[in-house]
């Protein structure tokens, strides 16, 4: 009875506030990269435009739709959990994870194509291009790479959430883990919403 007030599930208010504060730090983490991006694009507009033509607009658009859809299914997972329908909630989490895998697969093909064309950091071909294009691809790989790491982490948290759901540790009264995983997932989506036009849609 004593001394273990914190051994149980996390308090709902606390868990939510903590997650939102963490989301702030994530936005600022990417914020530093967006600052770099904006300065280098401001200084090298033509190079950024030229380099952007080498990216596949189709893959970028496809991945945007995939990620938005995964955000919807994540939101529905929380909705079903709060309504007390754990089985349906699990289904939506599975859908989210599969969509995340799809995203990563498309991304993998894209990266592979860039590597084939010698468009990766320190590649001889890339170094022969103007500085603005080197910077574009440096930022492209860094920012989409960091984003992909977040996608993988998000899948991991969802997997953990599925296990907790199966063991009955999560229900309509104690949804913090799934709620927070979903908040994190939406954040990943929001970051992509900005990455997509900044890299793929430079006209």
């Amino acid at each position: 009875m004593s001394g273990h007030t914190h051994a149980g599930p996390i308090d709902r208010d606390r868990g939510c506030i903590g997650m939102w504060l963490f989301i702030c730090t994530e936005i600022l983490l990417f914020g530093g990269l967006f600052l770099l991006y904006s300065v280098y694009r401001y200084k090298n507009p033509a190079d950024f435009h030229a380099a952007s033509q080498d990216l596949s607009r189709f893959s970028g658009t496809l991945n945007t739709i995939v990620l938005i859809t995964s955000s919807l299914s994540a939101a529905l997972a929380v909705h079903e959990l709060r309504e007390g329908r754990a089985a349906r909630s699990k289904l939506f989490i599975w859908a989210t994870i599969l969509l995340a895998l799809t995203f990563l697969t498309v991304k993998g093909f894209e990266w592979a194509a860039k590597f084939e064309h010698g468009l990766y950091p320190n590649a001889a071909h890339l170094l022969s291009l103007p500085p603005g294009q080197i910077l574009f691809f440096g930022l492209y790989f860094t920012m989409t790479g960091l984003h992909a790491i977040h996608v993988i982490v998000g899948m991991g948290i969802f997997g953990y959430g599925l296990r907790a759901l199966s063991r009955g540790k999560i229900d309509a009264e104690h949804p913090v883990l799934v709620e927070n995983a979903t908040l994190f997932w939406h954040l990943v989506d929001v970051i992509w919403i900005f990455l997509f036009p900044l890299f793929y849609l430079i006209s």
């Binding site: 770099l36 300065v39 950091p121």
Partner: peptide
Amino acid sequence: LFGIGVFDPTKGGDPLL
């Protein structure tokens, strides 16, 4: 590790950033 160039003046990066 990879030489992305964002801080490297030889690749167009700006050390002041």
